[in-house]
Nucleic acid binder design. Sequence first.
DNA 1: ATAATAAGGGAAAATTATTATCCTTAAATA
DNA 2: TATTTAAGGATAATAATTTTCCCTTATTAT
Lengths: 134, 134
Amino acid sequence: MDYINLLKNNDLKVTPQRLIIVKELDTKGHMSIDDLYIALHSAFPSISLATIYKNINVMINKLFIQEVKIPNEKSVYELAKEEHAHALCVKCNAIMDMNLDVSKFIRKAETLSNYSLSKSSVIFSGICPTCQMS
Amino acid sequence: MDYINLLKNNDLKVTPQRLIIVKELDTKGHMSIDDLYIALHSAFPSISLATIYKNINVMINKLFIQEVKIPNEKSVYELAKEEHAHALCVKCNAIMDMNLDVSKFIRKAETLSNYSLSKSSVIFSGICPTCQMS
DNA sequence: ATAATAAGGGAAAATTATTATCCTTAAATA
DNA sequence: TATTTAAGGATAATAATTTTCCCTTATTAT
């Protein structure tokens, strides 16, 4: 992925801090504010939490990252991508994306609710393969 | 619903404040901390926010109420019930419960993820019938 | 019903999370 | 390269949540 153009295309200045944020989100998949702070701190020992918050918010406003609210956990952030569902491990907090087609579900939900529904937030919780073995 | 026994069965003292909290949650369905504060304030003008928080937390620990984390909104709380999905109106914030059978979905998700999955958090967003008309 | 005990309520302090401000510095553009 | 514009960092301010303290009240066991 071209992190530089991702920022440029969204009219954001390309700074080393921002590059690391998007790279971390891209390679790790899901990170909390604290995760990002720790990750950036090794490259920029003087980084401020405010910088993390400011950048997360500006990127959310530019619509290329998204917040994922997780039951009983702190929110994590991910690069925007096709709508998908999440599997959460309640032991190790690993989060996995799943390309699950929710369109049937949405249509059923529309019938049940009479709402006109367009977006979904779907999180399943359980135990990941690794933790199942231990 | 027998609010008194709901509290007693969970080893909680039956107080007027708690009765109103569970009654509000039962009749309104979903309420935020602030909603509850406003609702209790009319009956108990001197009530403290701390009382709301303490009771919500103790009820969550007793497992008879649950937090619902909503994208772009503050969390709301509801009485625990059978697993269900939520429809959220992004205009007026109305939330509706839907008895949607997610078991097929969970099984598909287990196949895709190799996780062992047991719980789900499903929120669809759109426009409620009322707001569709205006 | 009464006394003893445990727990709740309220006020405010303490913590934690998030945002704003100000100044310095770095990035973009001509 | 000079100019402008916005970003980063430090810190203060604000907001949100949790905890502490003390007093009152409900519950339980006489």
